[in-house]
Nucleic acid binder design. Sequence first.
DNA 1: AGTGCGTATGATATAACGTATCAACCCCAT
DNA 2: ATGGGGTTGATACGTTATATCATACGCACT
Lengths: 158, 158
Amino acid sequence: MTNQAFEAHDHRSCIAEGVASAAQICTERNLQFTKTRQRVLEILLSEHRAMGAYEILEQLRAEGLGSQPPVAYRALEFLTKNGFAHRIERLNAFIACSHLDNAHAPVFLICRSCDRVVEAEADPAQGEIGRAARQAGFVVERAVREAEGLCPACAPAA
Amino acid sequence: MTNQAFEAHDHRSCIAEGVASAAQICTERNLQFTKTRQRVLEILLSEHRAMGAYEILEQLRAEGLGSQPPVAYRALEFLTKNGFAHRIERLNAFIACSHLDNAHAPVFLICRSCDRVVEAEADPAQGEIGRAARQAGFVVERAVREAEGLCPACAPAA
DNA sequence: AGTGCGTATGATATAACGTATCAACCCCAT
DNA sequence: ATGGGGTTGATACGTTATATCATACGCACT
């Protein structure tokens, strides 16, 4: 990751590429990339930020794709389970994966000022969680690593 | 931390020591360790597990210490802000701090089978979050590091 | 074609978590 | 004594998440 990660960019290609990659992976793994699931991923990709489930649901509702909470939560469960999106625990919100290509061990940097979230990848076995787990004889299935603070753009102002 | 961390133990002393330490720290820092705050800490210490705010509230209510959500949330805010308790983001729950003595950079190991939570301490600047943040020019104010998986007691059964 | 199975959807209800707001109170320092 | 900061009481509301039951659809097997 570079400083660019927090900077504005044209991400029309993010959406197209993200959906295409996801579609391909679903084909390879025999997963059903249904309309609602695809649309939720598109929404996450196009907003390019962490979104609450109900915020996503509003868009689905406006498009006639379902209006009840389980609709959004089911799609999000599918997307997160398969690595197409991630849940940000700190925000109770979701964001499209920005590293669809690699293995998944995301670290999130959450700016409390502009609300942007950047995803980095880092092997959890190498870090403090891995060390603590080994010492305790604990088997890690999922590692949550989220930092809250100020991004390069917002830090100077503060 | 050792393997003992996940094992049963008599923790009557945890409660007494925890409350005493907290009381002393409050005195030193001119913080008001009010009845409700102390009681919430005691509840967390005696249950020795992650508890939801409403679960704590039930106990307070039973004891006539307040019955509305803000009562619990205010006490929990005080306790977490001052390091006497921690919020487990993954669980939307709270747990008493088990390292009142040291500086605070907790890592939590959450067993999905028995629901026990163990707190370890590790400098965040050294790990993956620190590295990712430095690369991105991000200023970390709070780091969430939580691992979900199986504790030594539950792993063999699975 | 008919049956059974797994997966996905639709729909309703409710649980669980969290906060805004305003008034009252209390201590204590000026 | 009084004014201000912190604490409490109380009401209401907003947000996030899941349980449950019913229905539909694709697909494999006979």
